[in-house]
């Protein structure tokens, strides 16, 4: 039988992880559930923006958390937990796309509506932008998502994706140039 692990978030700043089979029955579920609830938006968001498929994104996010459940003993701090989740989610997203090389190209009308409210922004622009981000190659796409969803600096993105900072910067620059050009053509007279 697998050793039970108890993890808990203490004051939002630390994680206490105990191997305690006796208390596991009561203690592990709420603690791990807290971690899932706290970070599900980040992991699901990364997967959804990358894959543009709610079902696949949910499956991938669940697998990331299940892997976390198995690896919980190795997590040293909340910062390490967030880094680990971003790294594993990013790699799994890229692997998923590579495994499905026959993945059909997204068309504008196939991009699903975001589950969140639009808060006054132009929904057409958002759809066009989401579609254009989805058309980027795998690594630049993940770089853009980490940069703008997670607000990470190039050095942090480089750590998560295991690539040189210069490569991250060049992916970002080229992606932004491409998005700017394509968006101007797609949307027309929009001041960018």
């Amino acid at each position: 039988m697998r050793a039970r692990v108890r993890a808990s978030v203490v004051g939002g700043t630390a994680i206490r992880i105990e191997e305690d089979p006796e208390q596991a029955a009561q203690g592990e579920i709420p603690a791990f559930a807290d971690i899932v609830r706290e970070h599900q938006g980040m992991v699901f968001g990364l997967a959804y923006h990358f894959l543009h498929d709610r079902g696949l994104a949910e499956e991938l996010a669940q697998e990331v958390f299940l892997e976390l459940y198995r690896q919980l003993e190795r997590i040293e701090s909340p910062a390490h937990l967030v880094f680990w989740l971003r790294k594993v989610a990013s790699r799994r997203c890229i692997d998923q796309i590579r495994r499905r090389s026959f993945w059909p190209k997204l068309r504008l009308d196939e991009v699903p509506e975001p589950a969140t409210k639009t808060d006054g922004r132009d929904p057409m622009l958002s759809r066009a932008l989401a579609r254009l981000v989805a058309s980027l190659p795998e690594k630049p796409r993940m770089v853009v998502i980490l940069r703008y969803q997670e607000d990470l600096a190039p050095a942090e993105i480089a750590q998560v994706l295991g690539m040189p900072v210069a490569t991250v910067k060049s992916h970002l620059q080229r992606s932004l140039d491409m998005l700017r050009d394509k968006l101007a053509r797609a949307v027309g007279e929009i001041a960018i």
Binding site: G41, M42, Y48, P114, S126, L129, A130
Partner: peptide
């Protein structure tokens, strides 16, 4: 700014 608004965290179902 548009990218930041478009690529926000999304809660699963």
């Amino acid at each position: 700014e548009d990218l930041k608004r478009t690529l926000r965290r999304i809660e699963p179902s």
